[in-house]
Simulated assay, not measured.
Amino acid sequence: MIFAIEEINNSTELLPGIKLGYQIYDSCGSVPVAVHVAFQLSNGLDPVFYTGDNCSQSGMVMAVVGESGSSPSISISRITGPFNIPQVSHFATCACLSDKQQYPNFFRTVPSDQFQADALAKLVKHFGWTWIGAVRSDSDYGNNGMASFLDAAHREGICVEYSESFFRNHPRSRIQRVADVIRRSTAMVVVAFTSPGDLRILLEELSLKPFPPRQWIGSEAWVTDPDMLRFSFCAGAIGFGIQKSGIPGLRDFLLDLSPSKVAASPVLTEFWEDAFNCRLEKSEKVFLMFTRG
């Protein structure tokens, strides 16, 4: 985000004569945290957002970029919408957000889940799987996405043995019940419309007891997550992914960051250690980077 804003501010073509200021917040995937931030933004958190010489306005939020999740995005839109503050999300895919009566100021750069639900139903039919199970995140993303999929599946002549919902902070007994439904089922195909965090909890529960292998069909949110490969019974999961592209200049921008700037940011520290396979350690005066392997 910082890279994109600096690219815009340094360009003479993108937004000539306009400088963008910003505040960046981490919602931690939490609706209450997202709501708290939305109220802060709506009430004018700081008197000045951009302190450069060419700043012509201050203290007024012109737009919100985010959230990545559908439920937090819905909550933010409910708060900022009455103030006519535009909201643009890069990853909130719930089909419900296409309702301009409810969310007139919400926009996104990613397709609605309606397209994915229809495609998943056609994928299942293509392989001749007419008897399936279904699990979903108990969230706006999961519930709306699965509802769209089940409608599409019905039109394709696909029968559903069970449809279960769960959320990562539900009691373990709830997760165990969903896992037991999958183990006892006769359907050998499971369609999962979940977030990565939710599915990870379910797969960890399933891995505790051996059960007949299942073919997993995944929504884009988790089926492209490399962390899922550690569950061997999901190695054959299939689904659809959103087309990705390289961002010119981003790599150089990240490589030019000094170790002191990286170490000062927990987010950048986590990114560096993962991307460059290193460990960044901070002492009182010195920053050291150790490379493994």
Rank of each mutant, 00 (worst) to 15 (best):
A264D: 13
P210R: 12
S245Q: 13
D252N: 11
G249I: 05
P259A: 08
F211A: 08
A237H: 03
Q215W: 09
G239I: 04
L255V: 06
E205M: 08
M228R: 06
S265P: 06
G218M: 02
L203M: 15
L250F: 13
L206M: 15
L255F: 10
E220C: 12
T224K: 07
A237G: 07
V190T: 07
A237R: 04
A221F: 03
L257H: 05
A221P: 00
C234K: 01
T194Q: 05
L257F: 08
S185I: 04
A192H: 01
W222R: 01
L250R: 07
G249K: 06
W216Y: 15
L206W: 07
M228C: 08
L203Y: 00
I238S: 12
S260I: 12
K209F: 08
E205K: 04
F193G: 00
I242Q: 10
A264Y: 04
I217G: 00
L199E: 00
E220D: 15
K209Q: 15
A187S: 14
S258D: 12
G239F: 03
G197Y: 04
A263K: 05
D256I: 03
P266L: 10
L208E: 14
R200N: 11
L254Q: 05
S258P: 00
I242C: 09
A235C: 07
S195A: 12
G236I: 00
S232H: 12
S260K: 12
P213S: 12
A221S: 15
G218E: 00
L257N: 01
V223S: 00
V223H: 04
D198F: 01
